[in-house]
Amino acid sequence: MNRAIVDIAAPLVLIAVLLAGWEAACRIMSIPSYFLPPPSEIAKAAVNSAPILFMSAWNTLFMALKALVVASVLACGVALVVALNQTLEKAVQPLAVALQVTPVIAIAPQVVIWAGLAHPERAIVALAVIVAFFPIFSGALTGLKSTDPDLERLFDLYGATRWQRLRRLRIPSSIPFVLEGHKVAGGLAVIGAVVAEFVAGSGGAQGLAWRILESSNRLQTARTFAAVIVLAIMGALLHAVLRYAERAILKRLRGR
């Protein structure tokens, strides 16, 4: 059989088998649907709540994208400044690491308060920015410092100024690393947005996390599952789009 068909079919078959087993188990053991709904009910819930789930998904995605843009500008800017000054880099690095290793959930309640309880969307974007910042910053900084040493020598030989070296050598060298950072940050921004929505926990921000909270509080477990699935699909799609963009940009940059 064609290898490509097998590659696509294999996971689909596995999923189908698991779903069939799940469905059968729920029916045979008469499991109450608030405890574990069968896949058929989840599908029904997904179809029935499709418009509202879609709107909520868009809300969450929009917050995550906003955060990604802000994080991108901030992280690239800071990396650029820091790369020019070793003392500054030494000063910033521990703070950046501390920011990265602190679980966002731990600071979320306070950020929600600072943003103002009437503006949960501000807290959501801010928290998503915090988690998306580090991978972009770290990628950009690594990229700015990982130039080909022979190219550096060539720039020395021709007496390049600091500005020429930055603009013509270090920034272009960093692009692949910056793109990789954005790819990682995209997924994290969604996680950050969802965590913040959970903590904000109000109807003020009608994202997917709010739908999950709301449905599970009402014991609409099938709808909870449907929202989780939509969230997973959204994350996967965002990752796929960022990966495609990364490849397209690199291809254009290198000519192949």
Binding site: D148, L154, Y158, L169
Partner: peptide
């Protein structure tokens, strides 16, 4: 003087984006 000396390295050492 500066600019009157050139080096060719073991690898072509070209800027891949240019």
């Amino acid at each position: 003087g500066r600019g009157e000396t050139s080096v060719v390295f073991q690898s072509p050492t070209l800027m891949p984006w240019a």
